[in-house]
């Protein structure tokens, strides 16, 4: 229209081609409100989750109180429920997983980002990203068919013979154990650590590497003392992701941990984790107290994830050397 109304200069609605929305007065306000609502949804979902878990676990909370958290007995027949063996199993398997996965994952990420030829790095990263997408039940199957026999016949006897004086490597081993679950979890979270850490390392500006090299640093000195510290917040981010996945992993863990609600000093002993017990027993839970105890376990897992993440962040804040936090 604006192009045709040449006879009336200045009177044509010149802006008619602009979209209605972008011309709305207070458009910024509306955009702000909309995006705020989207963001608020996240908080809302979290709150609903906690609320629902809280409401649906009223029976065991009243019956056992705080003792639920420190009771070792899980006996549906006598209506005795305690979360401690599951908390123990969840924490121990995740700790084992991180102990294995963090050094391996970060080492591999450093190799891929800093040392490997670009083409090799890209090819390997493709496979690593594939690994991250493999469903956990597949990892569970691999665990059952490969790792469990291997643990029973090779790894556990070997560890017992060499490090058997340590309580964590003593006692009989049947293959299914905390250690087995920890190893499977490690295999599952390593791709996350590698993929994210590599990305972060590669985004460290070339300038910063070259500054170290220009001072006479060797390639390794520049990587280890400058590039890795520069990328540290992102690397820690990858570890948080890994921790969150390890804590909540259900399927693969339940297939190899042994599903025995016991606390044991030995990593060779079978155990149980929170996510595994909920998945295994939810459908067959008879009686409200049993069912609600499982719900309360869910609440505990939620809080545990929250607390461990918080502790990890606190640890980082405390160990962060002064002067290095500006980019965090």
């Amino acid at each position: 229209m604006a192009t045709t109304s040449t006879t009336v200069p200045g009177a044509g609605p010149r802006a008619s081609s602009r979209s209605f929305l972008s011309r709305l007065r207070d458009g910024d306000e509306i955009a702000r409100l909309l995006t705020f609502l989207f963001a608020a949804t996240v908080v809302l979902i979290t709150a609903t989750l906690v609320y629902q878990l809280w409401v649906d676990s009223v029976l065991p909370r009243h019956k056992f109180g705080w003792k639920f958290l420190v009771t070792e007995v899980w006996d549906p027949v006598f209506d005795q429920f305690g979360a401690l063996p599951f908390i123990f199993g969840t924490v121990v398997t995740s700790a084992v997983a991180l102990l294995i996965a963090v050094p391996l994952g970060i080492g591999a990420a450093i190799f891929l980002a800093e040392l490997a030829p670009r083409r090799v790095s890209d090819a390997l990263t493709f496979f690593i990203d594939l690994l991250a997408a493999v469903p956990s039940v597949i990892y569970g199957l691999l665990g059952v068919f490969i790792l469990v026999p291997l643990m029973r016949e090779v790894i556990q006897p070997f560890l017992r013979a060499t490090l058997g004086f340590l309580p964590i490597f003593s006692g009989p081993g049947y293959g299914v154990s905390f250690l087995t679950a920890g190893i499977v979890l490690a295999v599952m979270v390593i791709p996350f650590i590698i993929s994210v850490s590599r990305e972060v390392l590669m985004s460290v500006p070339r300038d910063v590497r070259e500054a170290a090299l220009a001072l006479g640093a060797t390639r390794w000195e520049s990587t280890w003392k400058v590039v890795v510290p520069f990328a540290r917040p992102g690397i820690f981010g990858s570890i948080f992701l890994a921790l969150a996945r390890a804590l909540g992993e259900t399927m693969a863990v339940t297939m190899v941990i042994g599903n025995t609600p016991k606390i044991a000093a030995s990593l060779f002993a079978p155990g149980y984790s929170i996510a595994a017990v909920i998945a295994n027993e939810f459908t067959e839970a008879t009686g409200d107290l049993y069912l609600q105890s499982l719900v309360e376990l869910g609440l505990v897992l939620f809080l545990l994830t929250f607390i461990l993440n918080g502790l990890a962040r606190l640890l980082i804040l405390l160990t962060e050397r002064r002067g290095s936090g500006a980019y965090a």
């Binding site: 300038d207 500054a211 220009a214 001072l215 000195e221 400058v226 510290p229 520069f230 050397r321 290095s324």
Partner: peptide, 29 residues
């Protein structure tokens, strides 16, 4: 490179304290 130093186009301090930035070269060398 210890004998031939270099300063780059954009300031590129390390993510460290002022002291540690200057001390980096002497420390590694």
């Amino acid at each position: 490179r210890r004998r031939v130093g270099m300063v780059f186009q954009r300031p590129n301090p390390f993510p460290k304290s002022i002291f540690d930035n200057v001390a980096y070269g002497p420390r590694i060398n």
